[in-house]
């Protein structure tokens, strides 16, 4: 663990699909460093023999009967689509097919 840099912010914002302007990057370097610095407090604890908790409840796999049930019809599924042709969601082209 260490101080976060502008390169870290740029790397992480790339992973998260966020575009940050210079001013925001500078601000986040400070804020994230402060927050992550606070989190270093956890290093005071030896947790080498402690199991991690994913869920507070002890849960095992939950099974249900494998039976067909109605799902959303196409019109309903597409009703919030920013762009569609009535059958599919439309997006800008993904592959360049020259």
């Amino acid at each position: 663990m260490g101080k976060i840099t502008k390169q870290d912010v740029e790397y992480v914002s790339g992973l998260a699909h966020l575009t940050l302007d210079e001013e925001t990057k500078e601000r986040l370097v400070g804020e994230l460093s402060e927050i992550l610095g606070y989190m270093e407090k956890l290093n005071e604890l030896d947790t080498s023999n402690i199991e991690p908790t994913m869920h507070a409840l002890e849960m095992t796999n939950v099974y249900r009967e494998d039976k067909v049930q109605p799902s959303l019809d196409r019109e309903t599924a597409l009703m919030n689509a920013p762009d569609s042709d009535g059958e599919y969601f439309l997006v800008p082209k993904i592959l360049d097919t020259e």
């Binding site: 604890l45 947790t47 402690i50 991690p52 994913m54």
Partner: peptide, 15 residues
């Protein structure tokens, strides 16, 4: 490991 896994282990202690 340094953050997420560590936090889940301390979560066990808190519980």
């Amino acid at each position: 490991d340094a953050y997420y896994s560590k936090a889940q282990r301390v979560r066990s202690l808190i519980r």
